[in-house]
Structures are given as C-alpha cells and as structure tokens.
C-alpha cells in the first residue's frame, strides 16, 4: 500500500463528495511508436452508467486499463476517486471491480474458491467472505455449480462468475470491458439484468462495448471513440438527435440498380441533416419522415423491391461517426 493509508481512508468521505468519480484531461496512452489514446477528456459521475463506444482499436481497452490502474498514463491527468493512479494504484484498485475483456478466472480453482480467493487478494477476512461468496454465487445464478471446476462452464456462466468476482469487494466503480462479447442472446439478457440491478444499487458502471443495443440498454451517457480520440459525447438520445435523423428508410432495389436509384433519390431530400447512403444491396435514406421519403420515391417512379422504415438507432450514429470500413 502506498503512503499513509489511514489518512487516506479518513479522507475518503471528502473524496466522495466530489461530483466526478473519474475525471480525465488530455489523457494519453502511447506504446513504443503507436498512440492508442490521444488526449481525451471525460468525467464519470457517481451512480451513472458511462459507456465507451468504438470499433476495435479505438483505444477503449487502453483507456479502461488506465482507469483500472494497471497501465500507467503516458500524458495528461487522470483522477479516480480523487486519487492519482500513478502513486495510489493499490488504494484505488481496492475500491474498483474489474471485468476484463477476456476472463481471467482461476482455472485451477472451483467456482466458490474463485470468489473466495479473489476476496482474499483484497485482504478481506475469511469470516466476512463466507456470506459474501454465497450471496454472489446466488447473484450469478451459479449456486448449483459452487464446487464445480471453472473450465467446463459455459461462456455465459464464466462471464457471470467474472462479474460476481468483480463485486467481491463491494466496489464503488465497476469497470466492464466488452462484458457480453461472444455470448448468446439469453446470456446477454441475463447479464444486462444483473448490471441493471447493480446500477439500481448505486454502483457506478463504466463499460466498453461495440454492441449498440447494449449501449442503449445500459448507458446513461457515452462517448464514441475512434482512432484514440473522442468523436462524440452525450446520452444515447442526444447522440441520435445530434448525429442522425429521426427515421431511416431502407429501400432495396434490384442488384446493381441501387447506386443509380440513390443518385435520383438525392433530389428528394429536403430537411436539415438529411442524407443518403448507397450500399451494394440497398439505399439508406436518413430523413425526418421515412414514410414521406418512400412516397417521394414512388412519385419519381422509383419502385424498390422492398422498403422498411425504422427509427434511427445508435448504430446509425456509430457508423456515421466511425465509418463503415473495417478497422482491423
């Protein structure tokens, strides 16, 4: 432990009065010749669910590792719970829960032992851990597998165990790096439910994801990262309002005819921020009123094979901001 610990424990109450649990200014992470995070600013407030969105390689995981105090900051300032991770890493980590991108469960231990031993790493007493472990196995719906080895568990079970494990020290901030990647829909929904409950209980959630539905479900506020920078920030609704239109009309024409159709349809766009995107298999019209756009198409004698009008989603914002081409 660093420095005079007791003084810090006493100082905790005043730290907690501060608005931002995590605050970063000009936060930068550079590896040898590559800048993973390029001077970003953000604040995470107590009790909110804050998301980092972005394609692979956007710098999300590097940011999470810096917040988790397992990667030193190259430049800029980062304060977590009012403290500097460079000098007070262990003290900060004592109050964090971490769900890494890839499970780091202890394959040589059982489900119960994974929770128990992890609690011991935090210096918790055996007596305090016993009820806590039972409670968390219940929370993760793993009580029946308590004495099973970890390796044969399903992906969803392992993920739930990882989340349960991250809660062993009653963390004030829970860091989740792509919590549901690779899980089937049932497992994802179970996890979302658990995370929602934690949020209700007052835990501050910080998560990265590239699933837009996940971000919309869970996040109060999020930032979109691309190439190590923050390209947009706000609530899901704010982002949609700011970077997309209310509705999207998807018109599907015969193969090869989509580009030509898009050309002619561009005349139909009128409103503010409305735009058109021609893909090989369909044309997307970002408009305020999707039904009207489809009607306009018919008026100029363009009859798509099929048409679909939907509301704009975070995914539209995401693709608009970070592009459609593959990043890695």
């Amino acid at each position: 432990m660093s420095a005079p610990e007791t003084a810090e424990v006493l100082a905790r109450n005043s730290d907690e009065a501060a608005e931002a649990l995590i605050s970063a200014q000009g936060l930068t992470k550079r590896f040898a010749d590559f800048t993973a995070v390029d001077g970003i600013d953000f604040d995470v407030r107590r009790g909110e669910a804050f998301g980092f969105l972005g394609p692979n390689g956007a710098g999300k995981s590097s940011t999470m590792r810096m917040i988790g105090c397992v990667a030193p900051v190259t430049a800029g300032t980062l304060r977590i719970l009012g403290r500097d991770p460079a000098t007070q890493g262990p003290a900060i980590r004592a109050r964090l829960g971490v769900v890494p991108q890839q499970d780091t469960l202890d394959l040589e231990l059982t489900v119960r032992e994974n929770l128990y031993v992890y609690g011991r790493y935090f210096g918790m007493s055996r007596a305090a851990l016993r009820p806590k472990v039972d409670e968390l196995m219940d929370f993760a719906q793993l009580s029946e597998r308590a004495n099973a080895k970890v390796e044969p568990l399903s992906g969803g079970m392992k993920r739930r165990l990882t989340i349960a494990r991250s809660l062993i020290n009653d963390p004030e901030i829970l860091l989740l790096d792509e919590p549901t990647t690779g899980l089937d829909p049932q497992a994802r929904h179970v996890l979302w439910d658990r995370l929602y409950r934690l949020k209700q209980a007052g835990v501050t959630l910080v998560l990265t994801t590239h699933y837009m539905d996940e971000a919309e479900q869970l996040c109060d506020r999020l930032v979109v990262m691309d190439g190590g920078r923050i390209v947009a920030e706000g609530s899901p609704q704010e982002l949609i309002a700011a970077h997309s239109t209310r509705e999207v009309a998807e018109l599907r024409f015969a193969p090869g005819a989509n580009a030509a159709a898009a050309e002619r349809l561009s005349a139909a766009l009128t409103g503010d921020r409305e735009r058109i995107e021609a893909l090989p298999d369909r044309v997307l019209l970002y408009v305020a009123d999707g039904e009207r756009a489809v009607a306009r198409s018919h008026e100029i004698d363009l009859f798509p094979l099929s048409s679909l009008v939907r509301r704009s989603t975070l995914e539209d914002v995401f693709l608009r901001l970070t592009g459609r081409s593959l990043v890695d």
């Binding site: 004592a94 964090l96 202890d106 394959l107 790493y121």
Partner: peptide, 14 residues
C-alpha cells in the same frame, strides 16, 4: 496462458 497474474494485479495486490 492462465493470465493468473493479470487477475491478481487487478485487485489491490502489487
């Protein structure tokens, strides 16, 4: 392979 130390160092252990 087991990433055991990564898990340990995510806690308050050094």
């Amino acid at each position: 392979y087991a990433k055991l130390y990564d898990a340990m160092l995510a806690t308050s252990l050094g």
